[in-house]
């Protein structure tokens, strides 16, 4: 039995995609190795998602979105909070991933997990409040009741920053899903190993299938297709690469999807509001 502990004989993990609540391999049959930090050793093999995987993920997100936004805000809050609890439960796996693949110190890795949990809890608490802060009853001249409420923009594509930033990514996920959006996420290559514990968190938090879909792959291969996908209502990329930002903005114009390329601060209302639309309803007041 001792031989199995020899690192040369360990089975390298293969981390699969997370689409519609399931863990499929990429339909393309392609993978890419993720090395341990500063090492030639393979930490895991990751699926290299294709355009077709992206399409499947968008389809899943699209069909999950209305159910998700029609959940009560309280229920969405509960599920986000549950995600925080499950993240805490998988703390060691996250820490191990960060230490192994990103070279974080255990302290820093733990801090990242702390902050991620904070973000989930923060936005869990916002799910049933942001409407009151940005909604309005408008005093129109005339016998009409007029009110404005924020609604989720719909299906959001999230391209993670090139430099992996776990807690920011979780804040983005929480801020985007909290008002009822569904999400397709393409993880940054360098941090893609987090897909494994993260997908397990989502799969075990009572989150409806398809609300959050995780893809690993090459940003350079997929970002234009994501930005141009007509079923996405919004695309978010707040990385540094100006060229990618501009291309995303350009591709987004095909269906005028909202392109969010300015970094949104974590732990703010503004972050949620980047992913909502305002609906104003008029109704007469009469007998």
């Amino acid at each position: 039995m001792a031989g199995l502990n020899d690192s040369n004989l360990q089975i390298a993990k293969t981390i699969k995609l997370y689409i519609n609540g399931a863990f499929p391999r990429t339909e393309s049959g392609r993978s890419f190795p993720l090395h341990k930090f500063n090492s030639k050793k393979i930490y895991a093999n990751l699926c290299r998602a294709s355009r077709k995987d992206l399409r499947n993920a968008v389809a899943a997100a699209k069909s999950a979105q209305s159910g998700w936004c029609n959940r009560s805000a309280y229920n969405r809050a509960q599920i986000l909070y549950r995600m925080a609890e499950m993240t805490e439960g998988k703390r060691n796996e996250f820490v191990e991933t960060f230490v192994q693949t990103l070279g974080y110190s255990p302290e820093r890795a733990n801090l990242e997990v702390d902050r991620a949990i904070d973000a989930l809890v923060y936005y869990a608490g916002f799910a049933d409040k942001y409407q009151q802060l940005i909604g309005a009853v408008n005093p129109v001249s005339g016998p009409h009741h007029n009110f404005t409420t924020p609604e989720p923009v719909g299906v959001v594509g999230l391209l993670c920053r090139e430099e992996f930033d776990f807690s920011h990514m979780i804040a983005q996920i929480a801020a985007i899903t909290c008002p009822g959006n569904s999400l397709v996420i393409l993880l940054a290559e360098e941090g893609a190993a987090v897909l494994a514990p993260l997908a397990e968190v989502f799969a075990t938090s009572d989150l409806p299938d398809g609300v959050i879909n995780l893809l690993s792959g090459f940003t350079s291969e997929l970002y234009e297709h994501m930005a141009g996908h007509m079923e996405l209502d919004s695309i978010c990329f707040d990385g540094k690469n100006e060229k990618i930002r501009a291309r995303i903005k350009e591709e987004a114009i095909h269906n005028l999807k909202r392109a969010i390329v300015k970094p949104q601060p974590d732990f703010t209302l503004e972050h949620i509001l980047a992913f909502v639309e305002y609906k104003t309803v008029w109704h007469p007041i009469g007998f």
Binding site: P143, H144, P284, I285, G286, F287
Partner: peptide
């Protein structure tokens, strides 16, 4: 049956 119709006050005015 008496056939009648609802009336929207604001629009009638």
């Amino acid at each position: 049956p008496i056939l009648t119709e609802p009336i929207d006050e604001v629009m009638v005015i």
